[in-house]
Nucleic acid binder design. Sequence first.
DNA 1: GAGATCACTTAGGATCCTCGAC
DNA 2: GTCGAGGATCCTAAGTGATCTC
Length: 743
Amino acid sequence: IFNLIVMYNYESDAVFFFLDSHKHKDKYKDKEYKHKEHKKDKEREKLKHGNSDHKDMEKKYKEKEKMKHKDGSTDKHKDKHKEKRKEEKFFVCFFLCSPPHVKSEPDDDYHSPKYEKSIKRERDNDYEYEFKPKKIKTENDKKVKKRKQEDEDIKSKKTKGKKGEATDGKKKAKQEPEEKWKWWEEERYTDGVKWKFLEHKGPVFAPPYEPLPSNVKFYYDGKHMKLSKEAEEVATFFSKMLDHEYTTKDIFRKNFFKDWRKEMTSEEKSVITDLNKCNFTEMSEYFKAQSEARKAMTKEQKQKIKEENERILQEYGFCIMDNHKERIANFRIEPPGLFRGRGDHPKMGMLKRRIRPEDIIINCSKDSKYPTPPPGTKWKEVRHDNKVTWLVSWTENIQGSTKYIMLNPSSRIKGEKDWQKYETARRLKKCVDRLRAQYREDWKSKEMRVRQRAVALYFIDKLALRAGNEKEEGETADTVGCCSLRVEHLKLHPENEGQEYVVEFDFLGKDSIRYYNRVPVEKRVFKNLQLFMENKEPDDDLFDRLNTSILNKHLQELMDGLTAKVFRTYNASITLQQQLKELTTADDNIPAKILSYNRANRAVAILCNHQRAPPKTFEKSMQNLQAKIDAKKDQLCDAKRELKSAKADAKVRRDEKSKKAVETKRKAVQRIEEQLMKLEVQATDREENKQIALGTSKLNYLDPRISVAWCKKWGVPIEKIYNKTQREKFAWAIDMADEDYEF
DNA sequence: GAGATCACTTAGGATCCTCGAC
DNA sequence: GTCGAGGATCCTAAGTGATCTC
């Protein structure tokens, strides 16, 4: 929805992040841009025009920026693009880790792809520039040993007293909650075994379809038409989405209509031939009224529903895994409906069919009490595979992919994996300098594939790009990651706004979130990119000799367990740690420290391109907050005035009573000042957070021990950083990290 | 070695629910 | 006690990467 612009200033070692919603319509209209986006852009524009409050923020930050960067580089940037981006601009400025230094190097050894192709075979066998196998072996041995050592370290941290509990799996359902189970103090399974005992009640199915009351009618071509139960159910799916933009999209309508017709009787099929003649309004109104009625229910009715939900949760929401009662994440089967793909998904609107017990595979222990299927039905299969973590699986009909029911993030099985993930990222920290030196060396390689690999790795490392697996064309939205970038996603600027060798990225990443970034790169990278793009069509792959499998194989050789995504975890966590060090001031009070934390978190979210649509109520809530601030300011003025007069009074009277009055007034002023500051901090935080989602990085990329250590060091209650669910997920980190923890 | 499959993590939007203001 | 904002939770799509199959 918004463009992310990242600018790097060499002199100040600063990275500037801009969130900018200006149009790139021209680019999208470009003939070469095959996968057209104008519709989406128009929608984005619509969204964008609803948010025009950035100017004030811009002013605020401009001042901060001036203080931080005397070279005025961002001003230059701004001036040049003032016209383009005159609508609005919101930005946050951060200092990140030291940038690569630009060296001027001779333009040697550059060949066109054609030339490269002609010598490809020869060169593919030429390992002169490859990682030396002998070295790898010794290094890898060391790494393996190191890893084993890490495992030992982790094990030695664990108390052995509880050993008997978790291992041999017979059901002895422990009366849990009283004392939280510290799984991180126990032995881990090896050899891919995930559990020894697993018992659960199976999934909760979607409620059966309830036909519409007879007064709720469907009209075709202006005439009432009674639909069969099957056709009616699918029609209700569409009617429930009538207010959603989806139903205006051609692909959505086309897919829906095609699948809907499959559910119709032959008679219905012969009559209903045009979706535009269908009138779902009464259905839509009915569901809206139902929704309102639900909201208007009495307390007792709501309580009853709550109790019923709680009963279901207690019955189906937990399993017994190795003597412990563990919470299940998603024990409800996805109800039928219309598929809502993200971005320009070719399958949006298709019918997601109802999942029946006959579609379900149950996974549990042989010696457990198997879940019973609903009366008159049976499971597709009951299996006992303890090398996987899922409890239930089924195949969905849209993409043909498998869906799973798994455990909650607070469970042992998920927690261990999470912990391990951060340990791998910490191992990368120890060797990242070597890896960086290596890929820089590889930019000069005579082998095209090695150069491509090295440039891709540089992007993954520096820009936190995702790996970019290949995708089946026509099956999903056209999104890319690093390895799947196409020529059309990059523009090369030998000179741009006073900076040399600028690469302009513009592509849709995961969830069709736009990644827009103009970044200066090293000369060698730039020259290599020119070479990779030479004689290619816009829709050709940028890295034609690379895919994620090749890249990960290479990474595996450099460090045991290293894959492309480890870089994202590593760079996110290290950025948080650095930012916290830089931004936290000992003298700050708790709200100011929390603001610093959120800013550090925000730096990571921007690095990882975690965007969100601004909340619909954003403008209003900001106005409300501003009104509160204004009122508080008035209150402060009054309080100060009263203090002044109390002081004057005390001076004249010189008695205890008036002295006391001065003291009371002074305290009132102090209190109001604190309240005002709190409100102002809140406003700043909210404004800066408008289009950035902090949750994703907090939950998935930031080693929680960094946050825990920071909280302990600065006396910030952990509840201020992590909510209840997050504390449950990160219980292991909260328990084990002390204030000296270093990522 | 390429493609398919499987098992998982990561992701943003929708919906629910709580808490503070009035 | 009511209302609404916003945080918490739910939902499920969309990635990554290992392994299997041919």
